[in-house]
């Protein structure tokens, strides 16, 4: 059982982020796209934080965020987008979907680990 879910189609990013967060004492699960992320969330109620890419095959990260709120009716999980995107429109869509925060890649773990720990609780 995990308290953080890392969703990214890039195995390099997935492993890098998961490895860093595990090193910081978090329990981390991973998913390869939005569909996989929704499936993992359905089966693991301990997940408190989702760190997701935007551009992914099958289901993008923003659509996944919208479905977490609308289909899973999960209003409590914190969603952070970790992406190369930084356009205001994308961020607005994220905010509307209940995304809590936005990180523009590359991932720099030390810059965000304390915030992540607070979000995990």
């Amino acid at each position: 059982m995990a308290n953080v879910l890392v969703v990214d189609d890039s195995g390099t990013v997935r492993d890098e982020v998961a490895s860093f967060l595990r090193g910081a004492g978090m329990d981390v699960a991973t998913a390869v796209d939005g569909n996989d992320g929704l499936a993992k969330l359905r089966t693991d109620p301990r997940i408190k934080l989702v760190v997701a890419d935007v551009n992914m095959p099958n289901m993008d990260g923003l659509t996944m965020a919208e479905k977490i709120r609308s289909e899973l009716r999960n209003a409590t999980v914190n969603i952070i987008m970790l992406t190369t995107e930084s356009s205001p429109n994308m961020k607005e869509r994220g905010k509307a979907a209940g995304v809590k925060g936005w990180i523009v890649k590359p991932f720099k773990g030390a810059a965000v680990v304390e915030s992540f720990k607070k979000l995990v609780g």
Binding site: T12, D15, N55, T83, T84, S87, K105
Partner: peptide
């Protein structure tokens, strides 16, 4: 960021992520 002694799939993935990062910065 890829593991030591990477396989070809891990190297593929690395080039994919480099592409993604350049593309994202270009778009922004």
């Amino acid at each position: 960021a890829i593991p030591a002694q990477p396989t070809f799939r891990e190297v593929n993935d690395l080039l994919g992520e480099i592409t993604n990062l350049i593309w994202g910065a270009f778009k922004n």
